[in-house]
């Protein structure tokens, strides 16, 4: 079971991607717990995450979040995949990063 937390400015546009990621993960039987939150609430929700994904529009916050969670894997979502709300591409990327 992988816990994936997506962060963007208000947690709105990433929440669109969450549903598509859940679908893509279910299709390949990859067990995940995926949620989207605003950046400002990162400290509340990222504590037990396996991987944190940032929307590309807030990718400049990556160093700040990395400092908050020095031991966690943090990635910014690839722009094209984000634009197309391509859940499969993002899940594939997560699997690669996590080595699953």
């Amino acid at each position: 079971m992988r816990k994936i937390v997506l962060l963007c400015a208000a947690g709105m546009s990433t929440s669109l991607l969450v549903t598509n990621m859940q679908k893509a993960a279910a299709e390949i039987g990859y067990e995940t717990d995926i949620a989207a939150h605003p950046l400002s609430e990162a400290h509340l929700y990222c504590g037990d995450a396996d991987i944190i994904l940032l929307g590309p529009q807030v990718r400049f916050e990556l160093p700040k979040i990395q400092k908050q969670f020095p031991d966690k894997k943090i990635e910014s979502i690839e722009m094209r995949a984000y634009g197309m709300m391509d859940g499969k591409a993002v899940i594939d990327h997560v699997k690669k990063v996590m080595g699953d």
């Binding site: 963007c8 669109l16 709300m85």
Partner: peptide, 25 residues
């Protein structure tokens, strides 16, 4: 294909699909 994904969120002022899909970046 982007426009189909983007239109409903856009009505509610969420434009990231257009920004990164068209892309306008």
């Amino acid at each position: 294909s982007v426009a189909k994904v983007a239109i409903v969120p856009s009505i509610f002022n969420i434009n990231e699909p257009s920004i990164f899909g068209i892309p306008t970046v």
